[in-house]
């Protein structure tokens, strides 16, 4: 059975200290031709959340790519995004505790969320970006995928997940043997408000030219100004221009737009 792509769009306007910023978070997952051919549902998932904190608004996005050969990987991926945001919210209340605790909470929540299923059958990658006005921006991920942070001056920070020795579709994952240190984690200071934070699963990440990351980021940011950015992403992912592509595809983004009419 082919399931319809999941589309969610949320727009939140708020004010960060000393600046007026509109936060737009959105994303989309589409079933890849490989899974359509095999009559499998999309194994990717994404989720976003924004919530008020005393100093403004915190935002987080999460994506997950269930390992295609595992029977419950779709459920594992959806659980991973849900648990990542739950852990992020808990962590955002006390970021000084450190990111190790965020990872531990996420993994424990995920094991609880998959219930009686064998974790191996639910294996999935998991990536998370969370930003609060107090703690800055945190990017972390386990497994293949890509995180891109575009700074205020347009500089690109890239965090890629695939291990050097791996080929396509080989990845570390929740539900597969890994260590705490296998999580890739980077923090960016609160004083530097990015223009955008973007997560993609490998179905997108592997097809983006390294030297064109800024063009990709620009495209995602230009999508954010549309009335229905999630739908625009879906249209683009369903018309993905790469020859013979097979994978499910997910993009999730948070775009911070500064207003320009300040006194």
């Amino acid at each position: 059975m082919r399931l319809s792509p999941q589309i969610l769009t949320t727009m939140i306007s708020t004010t960060e200290p000393s600046d007026r910023v509109t936060i737009v978070s959105f994303g989309c997952s589409v079933t890849g031709p490989g899974n359509i051919k095999r009559s499998f549902a999309c194994q990717d998932a994404w989720r976003q959340k924004s919530w008020r904190v005393p100093s403004g608004v915190a935002s987080a996005i999460a994506i997950a790519d269930g390992m295609g050969s595992r029977p419950e990987s779709r459920a594992g991926a959806h659980a991973a995004t849900r648990c990542a945001l739950k852990a992020a919210r808990r962590w955002a209340e006390q970021p000084a505790i450190g990111t190790d605790w965020l990872i531990r909470w996420l993994e424990a929540e995920w094991r609880y969320a998959i219930g009686d299923h064998d974790p191996k059958e639910c294996s999935t990658t998991c990536w998370l970006i969370v930003r609060t006005p107090d703690s800055g921006t945190l990017v972390m991920g386990l497994g293949d995928g890509l995180a891109i942070l575009t700074g205020e001056d347009g500089t690109i920070e890239r965090l890629a997940g695939r291990e050097l020795e791996n080929y396509a579709n080989e990845t570390l994952a929740l539900g597969a043997p890994h260590k705490l240190s296998d999580w890739k984690v980077r923090s960016f200071p609160r004083t530097k408000l990015p223009q955008a934070a973007i997560l993609t699963t490998d179905g997108v990440a592997d097809d983006i030219l390294d030297q064109k990351l800024s063009s990709f980021s620009e495209w995602v940011r230009s999508t954010a100004v549309l009335k229905h950015p999630g739908r625009a992403l879906r249209r683009a992912l369903e018309r993905w221009p790469v020859k013979s592509h097979t994978d499910d595809k997910t993009i999730a983004a948070i775009v911070w737009n500064r207003t320009t009419n300040r006194p």
Partner: peptide, 11 residues
């Protein structure tokens, strides 16, 4: 920008 401008062309 269009996806054709930042993606590989080969399978």
């Amino acid at each position: 920008t269009k996806p054709e401008e930042f993606t590989v062309s080969e399978a």
